[in-house]
Write a protein that binds this DNA or RNA. Structure first.
Lengths: 177, 177
DNA sequence: AACAATTGTTGTCGTCAACAACAATCTTCC
DNA sequence: GGAAGATTGTTGTTGACGACAACAATTGTT
Protein backbone atom coordinates (compact mmCIF):
# COMPACT_ATOMS: atom_id res chain seq x y z
CA UNK A 1 0.00 0.00 0.00
CA UNK A 2 2.42 2.57 1.02
CA UNK A 3 6.04 3.12 0.70
CA UNK A 4 7.52 2.14 3.91
CA UNK A 5 10.91 0.80 3.27
CA UNK A 6 13.05 1.82 6.18
CA UNK A 7 15.91 2.96 4.04
CA UNK A 8 14.43 5.63 1.80
CA UNK A 9 13.32 8.83 3.33
CA UNK A 10 10.26 8.25 5.33
CA UNK A 11 7.02 9.25 3.78
CA UNK A 12 6.65 11.59 6.62
CA UNK A 13 5.28 14.87 5.47
CA UNK A 14 3.42 12.92 2.95
CA UNK A 15 0.11 13.39 4.68
CA UNK A 16 -1.21 10.56 2.66
CA UNK A 17 -4.77 11.47 3.18
CA UNK A 18 -6.68 11.16 0.03
CA UNK A 19 -8.89 13.96 -1.22
CA UNK A 20 -12.35 12.93 -0.27
CA UNK A 21 -14.58 15.77 -1.29
CA UNK A 22 -12.77 16.10 -4.56
CA UNK A 23 -13.87 19.50 -5.62
CA UNK A 24 -13.50 18.45 -9.19
CA UNK A 25 -15.23 21.42 -10.58
CA UNK A 26 -14.45 22.31 -14.12
CA UNK A 27 -14.87 19.19 -16.08
CA UNK A 28 -13.50 19.91 -19.42
CA UNK A 29 -16.59 19.31 -21.44
CA UNK A 30 -18.08 22.46 -22.64
CA UNK A 31 -20.86 24.32 -21.05
CA UNK A 32 -23.27 21.48 -20.96
CA UNK A 33 -24.66 19.19 -18.35
CA UNK A 34 -25.28 19.14 -14.69
CA UNK A 35 -21.69 18.60 -13.75
CA UNK A 36 -20.80 22.21 -13.68
CA UNK A 37 -21.55 22.53 -10.02
CA UNK A 38 -18.71 20.20 -9.15
CA UNK A 39 -20.91 17.33 -8.19
CA UNK A 40 -19.76 14.18 -9.86
CA UNK A 41 -22.33 11.49 -9.42
CA UNK A 42 -21.39 7.94 -8.64
CA UNK A 43 -24.59 6.50 -9.98
CA UNK A 44 -24.84 2.79 -9.30
CA UNK A 45 -21.57 2.85 -7.41
CA UNK A 46 -23.18 4.51 -4.44
CA UNK A 47 -25.17 1.37 -3.74
CA UNK A 48 -22.23 -0.99 -3.76
CA UNK A 49 -20.88 -2.13 -0.45
CA UNK A 50 -17.65 -3.18 -2.09
CA UNK A 51 -16.87 0.32 -3.25
CA UNK A 52 -17.51 1.91 0.11
CA UNK A 53 -15.48 -0.76 1.81
CA UNK A 54 -12.58 -0.32 -0.57
CA UNK A 55 -12.40 3.40 0.07
CA UNK A 56 -12.72 2.89 3.79
CA UNK A 57 -10.08 0.23 3.88
CA UNK A 58 -7.60 2.44 2.10
CA UNK A 59 -8.19 5.13 4.68
CA UNK A 60 -7.87 2.72 7.59
CA UNK A 61 -4.70 1.14 6.34
CA UNK A 62 -3.10 4.48 5.65
CA UNK A 63 -3.89 5.59 9.16
CA UNK A 64 -2.57 2.35 10.57
CA UNK A 65 0.64 2.64 8.61
CA UNK A 66 1.06 6.24 9.65
CA UNK A 67 0.26 5.61 13.30
CA UNK A 68 2.64 2.65 13.48
CA UNK A 69 5.13 4.33 11.22
CA UNK A 70 7.61 4.98 14.00
CA UNK A 71 7.93 1.26 14.65
CA UNK A 72 7.72 0.34 10.98
CA UNK A 73 4.97 -2.22 11.30
CA UNK A 74 2.34 -2.76 8.66
CA UNK A 75 -1.12 -4.20 9.18
CA UNK A 76 -0.26 -7.67 7.96
CA UNK A 77 2.87 -7.85 10.05
CA UNK A 78 0.87 -6.79 13.06
CA UNK A 79 -1.74 -9.44 12.42
CA UNK A 80 0.89 -12.13 12.12
CA UNK A 81 2.63 -11.14 15.34
CA UNK A 82 -0.65 -10.87 17.19
CA UNK A 83 -1.76 -14.34 16.23
CA UNK A 84 1.60 -15.88 17.02
CA UNK A 85 1.68 -14.05 20.32
CA UNK A 86 -1.71 -15.40 21.25
CA UNK A 87 -1.00 -18.90 19.98
CA UNK A 88 2.67 -19.72 20.32
CA UNK A 89 3.84 -22.78 18.48
CA UNK A 90 1.56 -22.48 15.50
CA UNK A 91 2.82 -23.71 12.17
CA UNK A 92 3.11 -21.38 9.21
CA UNK A 93 0.26 -23.21 7.57
CA UNK A 94 -1.98 -22.67 10.57
CA UNK A 95 -1.18 -18.97 10.74
CA UNK A 96 -1.70 -18.54 7.03
CA UNK A 97 -5.04 -20.28 7.16
CA UNK A 98 -6.20 -18.37 10.16
CA UNK A 99 -5.32 -15.00 8.68
CA UNK A 100 -6.37 -15.87 5.18
CA UNK A 101 -3.01 -15.18 3.63
CA UNK A 102 -1.07 -17.44 1.33
CA UNK A 103 1.60 -19.53 2.89
CA UNK A 104 3.89 -18.39 0.12
CA UNK A 105 3.35 -14.83 1.23
CA UNK A 106 3.84 -15.70 4.88
CA UNK A 107 7.33 -16.93 4.09
CA UNK A 108 8.50 -13.42 3.23
CA UNK A 109 6.63 -11.87 6.11
CA UNK A 110 8.32 -14.21 8.54
CA UNK A 111 11.70 -13.74 6.90
CA UNK A 112 11.37 -10.06 7.62
CA UNK A 113 10.12 -10.47 11.17
CA UNK A 114 12.75 -13.05 11.92
CA UNK A 115 15.50 -10.79 10.62
CA UNK A 116 14.30 -8.13 13.00
CA UNK A 117 14.44 -10.66 15.82
CA UNK A 118 10.75 -10.38 16.56
CA UNK A 119 9.71 -13.90 15.62
CA UNK A 120 11.56 -17.19 15.55
CA UNK A 121 10.99 -20.33 13.54
CA UNK A 122 11.61 -23.39 15.65
CA UNK A 123 11.92 -26.68 13.88
CA UNK A 124 9.14 -28.85 15.13
CA UNK A 125 10.19 -32.20 16.48
CA UNK A 126 6.73 -33.60 16.01
CA UNK A 127 6.47 -32.74 12.34
CA UNK A 128 9.83 -32.03 10.83
CA UNK A 129 8.26 -30.43 7.81
CA UNK A 130 6.87 -27.59 9.80
CA UNK A 131 8.09 -24.75 11.93
CA UNK A 132 6.70 -23.80 15.29
CA UNK A 133 6.38 -20.05 15.41
CA UNK A 134 7.18 -18.07 18.53
CA UNK A 135 7.76 -14.49 19.47
CA UNK A 136 11.23 -13.74 20.69
CA UNK A 137 11.67 -11.95 23.98
CA UNK A 138 12.24 -8.82 22.00
CA UNK A 139 9.18 -9.61 19.95
CA UNK A 140 7.00 -9.83 23.02
CA UNK A 141 7.93 -6.45 24.39
CA UNK A 142 7.75 -4.97 20.93
CA UNK A 143 4.28 -6.38 20.37
CA UNK A 144 3.11 -4.77 23.57
CA UNK A 145 4.13 -1.41 22.18
CA UNK A 146 2.60 -2.18 18.80
CA UNK A 147 -0.67 -2.93 20.53
CA UNK A 148 -0.66 0.41 22.26
CA UNK A 149 -0.10 2.18 18.96
CA UNK A 150 -2.70 0.03 17.27
CA UNK A 151 -5.16 1.01 19.97
CA UNK A 152 -4.41 4.62 19.20
CA UNK A 153 -5.07 3.93 15.55
CA UNK A 154 -8.33 2.31 16.47
CA UNK A 155 -9.29 5.47 18.29
CA UNK A 156 -8.78 7.35 15.06
CA UNK A 157 -11.20 4.97 13.42
CA UNK A 158 -13.71 5.53 16.18
CA UNK A 159 -13.34 9.27 15.74
CA UNK A 160 -13.91 8.99 12.04
CA UNK A 161 -16.89 6.67 12.19
CA UNK A 162 -18.33 7.42 15.55
CA UNK A 163 -18.10 5.09 18.48
CA UNK A 164 -21.40 3.42 17.89
CA UNK A 165 -20.87 3.05 14.18
CA UNK A 166 -17.52 1.43 14.68
CA UNK A 167 -19.04 -1.01 17.09
CA UNK A 168 -21.85 -1.80 14.73
CA UNK A 169 -19.39 -2.23 11.89
CA UNK A 170 -17.36 -4.74 13.85
CA UNK A 171 -20.53 -6.60 14.67
CA UNK A 172 -21.73 -6.70 11.08
CA UNK A 173 -18.40 -8.00 9.84
CA UNK A 174 -17.73 -10.35 12.72
CA UNK A 175 -18.23 -13.37 10.48
CA UNK A 176 -15.20 -12.46 8.47
CA UNK A 177 -12.70 -12.25 11.26
CA UNK B 1 18.28 -22.00 1.52
CA UNK B 2 16.96 -25.13 3.06
CA UNK B 3 15.88 -26.12 -0.34
CA UNK B 4 19.04 -27.14 -2.07
CA UNK B 5 21.12 -28.45 0.76
CA UNK B 6 21.51 -32.10 -0.12
CA UNK B 7 23.36 -33.01 3.02
CA UNK B 8 20.62 -33.15 5.66
CA UNK B 9 19.31 -36.46 4.65
CA UNK B 10 19.44 -39.43 6.85
CA UNK B 11 21.26 -38.99 10.12
CA UNK B 12 18.09 -37.96 11.84
CA UNK B 13 17.02 -41.16 13.43
CA UNK B 14 13.51 -40.34 14.28
CA UNK B 15 13.77 -42.86 17.05
CA UNK B 16 14.28 -40.98 20.24
CA UNK B 17 12.78 -37.63 19.51
CA UNK B 18 9.19 -37.50 20.49
CA UNK B 19 6.85 -34.62 21.13
CA UNK B 20 6.77 -34.44 24.89
CA UNK B 21 3.48 -35.99 25.85
CA UNK B 22 3.05 -33.92 28.94
CA UNK B 23 2.50 -30.80 26.93
CA UNK B 24 -1.08 -29.72 26.75
CA UNK B 25 -0.21 -26.41 25.25
CA UNK B 26 -0.46 -25.19 21.74
CA UNK B 27 2.08 -27.15 19.91
CA UNK B 28 2.73 -27.52 16.31
CA UNK B 29 2.26 -31.22 16.37
CA UNK B 30 -0.97 -32.54 15.11
CA UNK B 31 -1.56 -34.97 17.85
CA UNK B 32 -3.26 -32.79 20.38
CA UNK B 33 -3.91 -29.47 21.91
CA UNK B 34 -6.31 -26.68 21.50
CA UNK B 35 -5.55 -26.15 17.87
CA UNK B 36 -7.12 -29.32 16.81
CA UNK B 37 -10.57 -27.92 17.09
CA UNK B 38 -9.66 -25.03 14.88
CA UNK B 39 -9.69 -22.57 17.69
CA UNK B 40 -6.97 -20.08 17.00
CA UNK B 41 -7.42 -16.90 18.91
CA UNK B 42 -7.03 -13.58 17.21
CA UNK B 43 -6.45 -11.70 20.40
CA UNK B 44 -6.30 -7.95 19.82
CA UNK B 45 -7.05 -8.40 16.16
CA UNK B 46 -10.69 -9.11 16.87
CA UNK B 47 -11.21 -5.53 17.94
CA UNK B 48 -9.73 -3.96 14.86
CA UNK B 49 -12.09 -2.60 12.26
CA UNK B 50 -9.34 -2.62 9.68
CA UNK B 51 -8.83 -6.34 9.97
CA UNK B 52 -12.50 -7.14 9.61
CA UNK B 53 -12.81 -4.77 6.71
CA UNK B 54 -9.81 -6.27 4.96
CA UNK B 55 -11.23 -9.77 5.18
CA UNK B 56 -14.61 -8.59 4.06
CA UNK B 57 -13.23 -6.65 1.16
CA UNK B 58 -11.35 -9.67 -0.12
CA UNK B 59 -14.53 -11.66 -0.03
CA UNK B 60 -16.55 -8.97 -1.76
CA UNK B 61 -14.01 -8.42 -4.52
CA UNK B 62 -13.67 -12.10 -5.17
CA UNK B 63 -17.40 -12.41 -5.49
CA UNK B 64 -17.52 -9.40 -7.78
CA UNK B 65 -14.77 -10.74 -9.99
CA UNK B 66 -16.44 -14.11 -10.12
CA UNK B 67 -19.90 -12.74 -10.80
CA UNK B 68 -18.63 -10.45 -13.54
CA UNK B 69 -16.15 -13.01 -14.73
CA UNK B 70 -18.08 -13.78 -17.89
CA UNK B 71 -17.72 -10.18 -19.06
CA UNK B 72 -14.19 -9.82 -17.74
CA UNK B 73 -14.76 -6.66 -15.75
CA UNK B 74 -12.99 -5.95 -12.49
CA UNK B 75 -14.23 -3.68 -9.73
CA UNK B 76 -12.04 -0.75 -10.67
CA UNK B 77 -12.97 -0.98 -14.32
CA UNK B 78 -16.60 -1.06 -13.36
CA UNK B 79 -16.24 1.99 -11.18
CA UNK B 80 -14.55 3.92 -13.97
CA UNK B 81 -17.20 3.06 -16.51
CA UNK B 82 -19.99 3.84 -14.09
CA UNK B 83 -18.67 7.29 -13.33
CA UNK B 84 -18.04 8.08 -16.97
CA UNK B 85 -21.48 6.81 -17.89
CA UNK B 86 -23.08 9.02 -15.30
CA UNK B 87 -20.90 12.03 -16.11
CA UNK B 88 -19.92 12.02 -19.74
CA UNK B 89 -17.18 14.41 -20.72
CA UNK B 90 -15.18 14.23 -17.53
CA UNK B 91 -11.44 14.60 -17.75
CA UNK B 92 -9.13 11.85 -16.60
CA UNK B 93 -8.06 14.02 -13.73
CA UNK B 94 -11.63 14.47 -12.59
CA UNK B 95 -12.37 10.77 -12.74
CA UNK B 96 -9.18 9.91 -10.92
CA UNK B 97 -9.94 12.38 -8.18
CA UNK B 98 -13.50 11.28 -7.80
CA UNK B 99 -12.61 7.62 -7.51
CA UNK B 100 -9.48 8.15 -5.49
CA UNK B 101 -7.19 6.47 -7.97
CA UNK B 102 -3.95 7.84 -9.36
CA UNK B 103 -4.15 9.46 -12.71
CA UNK B 104 -1.14 7.40 -13.70
CA UNK B 105 -3.10 4.29 -12.96
CA UNK B 106 -6.14 5.55 -14.79
CA UNK B 107 -4.10 5.78 -17.96
CA UNK B 108 -3.71 2.02 -18.12
CA UNK B 109 -7.28 1.40 -17.12
CA UNK B 110 -8.51 3.60 -19.94
CA UNK B 111 -6.06 2.09 -22.39
CA UNK B 112 -7.63 -1.25 -21.70
CA UNK B 113 -11.21 -0.02 -21.85
CA UNK B 114 -10.52 1.94 -24.99
CA UNK B 115 -8.98 -1.07 -26.66
CA UNK B 116 -12.16 -2.97 -25.94
CA UNK B 117 -14.15 -0.15 -27.49
CA UNK B 118 -16.03 0.57 -24.29
CA UNK B 119 -14.69 4.06 -23.63
CA UNK B 120 -13.34 6.76 -25.88
CA UNK B 121 -10.97 9.62 -25.20
CA UNK B 122 -12.06 12.71 -27.04
CA UNK B 123 -9.61 15.53 -27.31
CA UNK B 124 -11.13 18.46 -25.57
CA UNK B 125 -11.34 21.64 -27.59
CA UNK B 126 -11.66 23.72 -24.47
CA UNK B 127 -8.50 22.44 -22.82
CA UNK B 128 -6.23 20.73 -25.27
CA UNK B 129 -4.26 19.12 -22.53
CA UNK B 130 -7.15 17.00 -21.39
CA UNK B 131 -9.39 14.29 -22.73
CA UNK B 132 -13.14 14.23 -22.45
CA UNK B 133 -14.17 10.72 -21.54
CA UNK B 134 -17.24 9.10 -23.01
CA UNK B 135 -18.73 5.68 -23.25
CA UNK B 136 -18.95 4.32 -26.76
CA UNK B 137 -22.27 3.01 -28.01
CA UNK B 138 -20.94 -0.43 -27.30
CA UNK B 139 -19.83 0.74 -23.91
CA UNK B 140 -23.28 1.94 -23.01
CA UNK B 141 -25.03 -1.32 -23.77
CA UNK B 142 -22.21 -3.22 -22.15
CA UNK B 143 -22.45 -1.13 -18.99
CA UNK B 144 -26.14 -1.90 -18.77
CA UNK B 145 -25.28 -5.56 -18.65
CA UNK B 146 -22.47 -4.99 -16.19
CA UNK B 147 -24.91 -3.24 -13.91
CA UNK B 148 -27.26 -6.16 -13.98
CA UNK B 149 -24.45 -8.50 -13.03
CA UNK B 150 -23.21 -6.09 -10.40
CA UNK B 151 -26.69 -6.00 -8.93
CA UNK B 152 -26.58 -9.76 -8.74
CA UNK B 153 -23.27 -9.52 -6.96
CA UNK B 154 -24.76 -7.04 -4.56
CA UNK B 155 -27.48 -9.53 -3.79
CA UNK B 156 -24.79 -11.97 -2.80
CA UNK B 157 -23.48 -9.39 -0.38
CA UNK B 158 -26.94 -8.87 1.03
CA UNK B 159 -27.30 -12.61 1.49
CA UNK B 160 -24.00 -12.79 3.28
CA UNK B 161 -24.53 -9.83 5.57
CA UNK B 162 -28.27 -9.65 5.82
CA UNK B 163 -30.34 -7.00 4.17
CA UNK B 164 -30.41 -4.69 7.14
CA UNK B 165 -26.74 -5.09 7.91
CA UNK B 166 -25.78 -4.27 4.37
CA UNK B 167 -27.88 -1.16 4.50
CA UNK B 168 -26.39 -0.13 7.80
CA UNK B 169 -22.91 -0.77 6.48
CA UNK B 170 -23.49 1.47 3.49
CA UNK B 171 -24.79 4.13 5.80
CA UNK B 172 -21.84 3.93 8.16
CA UNK B 173 -19.36 4.16 5.32
CA UNK B 174 -21.26 6.74 3.29
CA UNK B 175 -18.64 9.38 4.05
CA UNK B 176 -16.06 7.45 2.11
CA UNK B 177 -17.90 7.11 -1.13
C1' DA C 1 6.93 37.18 -22.84
C1' DA C 2 8.44 34.68 -18.65
C1' DC C 3 7.18 31.62 -15.13
C1' DA C 4 4.22 28.64 -12.38
C1' DA C 5 0.61 25.16 -12.48
C1' DT C 6 -2.12 21.43 -14.59
C1' DT C 7 -2.95 17.24 -17.63
C1' DG C 8 -1.83 13.09 -19.57
C1' DT C 9 1.86 9.97 -19.97
C1' DT C 10 5.71 6.83 -18.97
C1' DG C 11 8.38 4.38 -15.87
C1' DT C 12 9.94 2.58 -11.34
C1' DC C 13 9.18 0.47 -6.87
C1' DG C 14 6.85 -2.10 -3.32
C1' DT C 15 2.61 -4.52 -1.67
C1' DC C 16 -0.41 -8.09 -2.34
C1' DA C 17 -3.42 -12.19 -4.08
C1' DA C 18 -3.29 -16.31 -6.91
C1' DC C 19 -0.75 -20.06 -8.94
C1' DA C 20 2.55 -23.50 -10.09
C1' DA C 21 6.34 -26.31 -9.16
C1' DC C 22 9.54 -28.48 -6.05
C1' DA C 23 12.10 -31.04 -1.97
C1' DA C 24 11.40 -32.79 2.38
C1' DT C 25 8.53 -34.99 5.20
C1' DC C 26 4.27 -37.16 6.98
C1' DT C 27 0.10 -40.36 6.29
C1' DT C 28 -2.35 -43.95 4.30
C1' DC C 29 -3.26 -47.97 2.36
C1' DC C 30 -2.13 -52.33 0.31
C1' DG D 1 7.17 -52.50 5.11
C1' DG D 2 6.96 -49.88 1.33
C1' DA D 3 4.76 -47.45 -2.55
C1' DA D 4 1.48 -43.76 -3.41
C1' DG D 5 -0.60 -39.67 -2.06
C1' DA D 6 -1.04 -35.57 0.86
C1' DT D 7 1.03 -31.71 3.51
C1' DT D 8 4.55 -28.05 4.68
C1' DG D 9 7.73 -24.69 3.63
C1' DT D 10 9.92 -22.56 -0.18
C1' DT D 11 10.89 -20.25 -4.66
C1' DG D 12 9.29 -18.07 -8.59
C1' DT D 13 5.87 -15.85 -11.77
C1' DT D 14 1.95 -13.19 -13.02
C1' DG D 15 -1.12 -9.41 -12.68
C1' DA D 16 -3.76 -5.78 -10.13
C1' DC D 17 -2.79 -1.95 -7.43
C1' DG D 18 -1.00 2.39 -4.75
C1' DA D 19 2.72 5.89 -4.37
C1' DC D 20 6.21 8.69 -6.69
C1' DA D 21 9.00 11.03 -9.93
C1' DA D 22 9.96 13.01 -14.21
C1' DC D 23 8.52 14.75 -18.64
C1' DA D 24 6.07 17.22 -22.82
C1' DA D 25 2.23 19.76 -24.00
C1' DT D 26 -0.70 23.13 -22.74
C1' DT D 27 -2.96 26.59 -19.71
C1' DG D 28 -2.96 30.56 -16.39
C1' DT D 29 -0.89 34.15 -14.29
C1' DT D 30 1.76 38.14 -13.86
Amino acid sequence: MARNSPAPRSAKSRAGIRPLPGRARSENGNAHSDLMNGEIGLDALAGHAGYAVRRFQIWVFQDFIRTLGAVDIRPTQYSVMTVIGANPGLSQMAVAKRLGIERARLVHLLDSLEQRDLVSRVKSAADRRSHALHLTARGRTALAQFKRLAAEHERHVAEKLGKENRKKLLQILSDFT
